[in-house]
């Protein structure tokens, strides 16, 4: 029963990842793509933790921790780029 639930949740998260990728590919604005990437990161994080629980090893959870820190830095970089662009347009 436990294995069945863990596997089913993994497939459900794969379906969520597909929806996020469709959002990234079809959104016209950059902020829409950024939000899609953010939600994708959350879905992948949930997948990594689920897989780590089903494998039962502590090393597998470190991947989720490291990705959570460094992925956030990447989103900060893109969001800062968007902020500078909006401020530059309003000053002109």
């Amino acid at each position: 029963m436990r294995e069945f639930l863990l596997t089913g949740m993994q497939w459900f998260i794969i379906a969520c990842i597909l929806v996020c990728i469709i959002r990234i590919l079809t959104s016209r604005t950059t902020s829409g793509k950024l939000v899609g990437l953010n939600v994708l990161s959350g879905a992948v994080l949930a997948f990594l933790v689920l897989r780590g629980v089903s494998e039962g090893r502590a090393l597998y959870l470190d991947v989720a921790l490291v990705y959570d820190i460094f992925g956030f830095l990447g989103f900060l970089g893109i969001a800062r780029f968007l902020k500078d662009k909006i401020q530059g347009e309003s000053q002109e």
Partner: peptide
Amino acid sequence: LLSAMLFYILHAPDVAITEAAVGAGV
């Protein structure tokens, strides 16, 4: 991000850590 997840599924968590740090962040 997805390739880090792929390495993770293929039982290489150390490669996945490096890919997540370098690829997604830096």
